[in-house]
Design a protein around this nucleic acid. Sequence first.
DNA 1: ACCTCATACTCAGATAATCTTTATATTGCC
DNA 2: GGCAATATAAAGATTATCTGAGTATGAGGT
Lengths: 113, 113
Amino acid sequence: MAKAMREPTFWILTALVDQARHGYGIIQQAASLSDGQVTLQAGTLYAALDRLHAEGLVAIDHDETVDGRPRRYYRLTRGGVAALQEETTRLERNASTASRQLAARRHLGEATA
Amino acid sequence: MAKAMREPTFWILTALVDQARHGYGIIQQAASLSDGQVTLQAGTLYAALDRLHAEGLVAIDHDETVDGRPRRYYRLTRGGVAALQEETTRLERNASTASRQLAARRHLGEATA
DNA sequence: ACCTCATACTCAGATAATCTTTATATTGCC
DNA sequence: GGCAATATAAAGATTATCTGAGTATGAGGT
């Protein structure tokens, strides 16, 4: 079965589509894009970034140091963009299949409890 | 963060929308609805059905015995229909957000590698 | 001076859904 | 006789994510 991307991973990629961002910036962008519905956990995020980097979906853009604290910026690779595009298409298809089935059920008077 | 439903779970619920089905029937319906893209594993399926039953999203419709082998039919509860509807809406929103971001990127000439 | 909040990252341990594999059993086809 | 399809169950492994703690700085409030 087509390996499903998990939600946090999906939002990380989506947050990086328009520009390179550092960890905290990704968390904020994901929250903003989802109208506050998505709150990425720090532990999830950095683990996922390591994994996505190893898989070649994100690359390290550059490192900065601000007030003695390091900041690492990440960006999508071409593979990352392609993966997100594929995933988006899959989500659309899944949603429309379920929608169609749900609509068909409604026609029938909703017998089941 | 809104607890994300995993794909196999999503397909099990979708396969049960129109009628009660037994395990093997669910596997076939999921394959059919997804044009062969989804192949539910038996181990995943029965574990998920137990879980979904415990959560009240699916109910046992009835048991049959065919050739000495038991067959258990499952159906969606109202809660199951509602959960699938919610999940479908979420998928649509997620997909359209990612779509919008991807489209915006395309405008910019795709600088990043 | 002290506290809290926002920023920014790291790591250890637990949880939970899924996957893999194995087992069992019958029917029908070649 | 053996293999594929039907049909379910259960043990063991994998893995992404979550929880929670730790480290550290600067700004704003009391």
